[in-house]
Design a protein around this nucleic acid. Structure first.
Lengths: 293, 293
DNA sequence: CAAATTCTCTGACTATAATCAGAGAATGAG
DNA sequence: CTCATTCTCTGATTATAGTCAGAGAATTTG
């Protein structure tokens, strides 16, 4: 990696910690220490379980308990037991708590405003565009792709989402039992594998491989969650799958796809896949591709 | 200001606090609490006075003293009295301290690397370019322009820098006593005024006005420090001066300039200044401009 | 030269942000 | 029904990041 690139990133980090330091101080805004403010924010308008709060902020249970006690004493929230599970407790903001939260919201907005204020029209537009770009790419760089068990909850969720989307996009709907199979055992080493992309622990995409005997790998289940699109994640997933296929000794990759999946087809073409004659009778496929690794 | 702009800035801030939170944890790197690490970093390879350290990090004197004591006990630095001023104490890193500092440096680099790592070539380039843009514009937005006393230290420094630069750029050098005057009393309300641009308390530019009786304002001493160029600061300073001139009841602004100051001439032309016949005999001027407010 | 100021330090104190051990109630698994 | 687990809480304790008051030495100012 280029040194000047890294230098620029470091310089950016320095500038941001400086400004973000300011941000934190403003955000807490003297009424609450940062911890309480974050909690108040995270509880949201509808309330959540303490369990969920702990998970989202990854805080110690004892610590959260104390923060809640403090906010409760200030009359900003109420805690009650869940009806579904007596161990779980639910937190909800009182009207006073909601007001405080709005307060925080306005402070964050004022801060954002203060960043733009001193700039001229065209500089503002440039700054905002560049921020969007940085944000998008940093989020992209936070996505991690790892091998997963196809029977795991995340895997089943991804595949279900994938099927749902196919059902919506294909003209005739989609019935997974009709097409070429990709059962969990076929996507588990050494028969094949499943990759899952995660953003902050949450699954945002998947892709699978079936290994065949003639050193031919078969690509299946390529999917990127709508909220994670435009991050170049499809390309990364494809590269990761190709890497795994190579590691497993495959020399050729096959895949078939439906003509409604235009982004995917575009991606395959740009990634060196050649359209070939149908090599199977997948009923939902219109295009068959191949790539020599 | 557009709401979507502000929304984007807030979204950016949220993403950055998340990532920067990660950064802080990595940066501190378990050997030292953040405070000590910052100090270690700020002392630098050549050492500084405690005074300067306090100023740069804007920390309480008692707190800095304690942090230094702790680092001294760990054998990472030595403190000795200044020879020039017996009250001032100088801090210098020991070889062990320098090693620790290098350690921190490498951690920061590794973090920067980890941000770029998951991205493809073109995404990296885009991220870095966008970061440079965000950084540049945030720095620009941190610059504050205020009215200053022309006899103050910052004012004298700016004007001196300005003269030095003119001396270097004009073919025949520059002697401030030969041109049209702009003495402190002429740049003090109600006779005129001086604006200073500051970035984190440090002066990075100036601009002055002399008010004449016929509602004509005269622009003088427009200067932007080399390190703050490219931030659109010249334009902001000009706008600020025009605003002040209008407030003071001026209806016309005059200025003269030297042909070597091409950026300034460009700025004036783009900002609505018309070139007019010489209205004074400033020996260093080649162009005379006027703008109706 | 005296008085005011500057620079650094120590002592005393505080708030914030945790962490760890363990208790008690509710739930789920066998 | 029993046992392990989950969820939340309390008590005890810690590290970090300060703040405030004032003392003592050196320097600058009038």
């Amino acid at each position: 990696m280029d040194m000047p690139l890294i230098e620029q990133v470091r310089s950016f980090n320095r500038t941001m910690t400086e400004r973000v330091g300011v941000l934190n101080d403003h955000f807490l805004g003297r009424n609450h220490p940062l911890g309480e403010a974050r909690l108040l924010w995270e509880i949201g308008e509808k309330g959540v379980s303490i369990r969920e709060l702990r998970r989202r902020l990854s805080l110690d249970s004892a610590y959260v308990s104390r923060l809640l006690r403090s906010l409760e004493k200030q009359g900003l929230l109420v805690v009650r037991a869940s009806e579904a599970d007596g161990r779980v407790r639910l937190v909800q903001l009182t009207p006073a708590g909601l007001r405080e939260r709005t307060e925080l919201d306005q402070r964050a907005e004022a801060f954002a405003r203060s960043l733009l204020e001193p700039l001229g029209e065209s500089q503002r537009a440039k700054l905002v565009a560049a921020m969007a770009q940085v944000e998008r790419l940093l989020i992209a760089s936070m996505v991690q792709i790892t091998v997963a068990d196809p029977t795991s909850q995340d895997a089943r969720w991804c595949i279900e989402q994938y099927f749902t989307e196919l059902g919506e996009r294909f003209e005739a709907g989609f019935d997974p039992t009709l097409g070429i199979s990709a059962h969990p055992h076929e996507l588990t080493p050494p028969a094949g594998l499943l990759l899952i992309a995660r953003l902050r622990e949450e699954p945002v995409g998947c892709g699978a491989l079936k290994f065949h005997e003639n050193a031919v790998g078969e690509l299946k289940r390529m999917w990127v969650a709508p909220r994670a699109r435009g991050l170049g994640l499809g390309r990364r997933m494809l590269l990761a799958l190709e890497h795994e296929a190579r590691e497993a000794g495959m020399t050729v990759l096959h895949l078939e796809t439906n003509h409604t999946l235009v982004e995917a087809i575009e991606l395959y073409r740009h990634s060196g896949y050649q359209e070939v004659a149908a090599f199977n009778d997948e009923p939902y496929a219109h295009h068959w591709f191949e790539k020599r690794l």
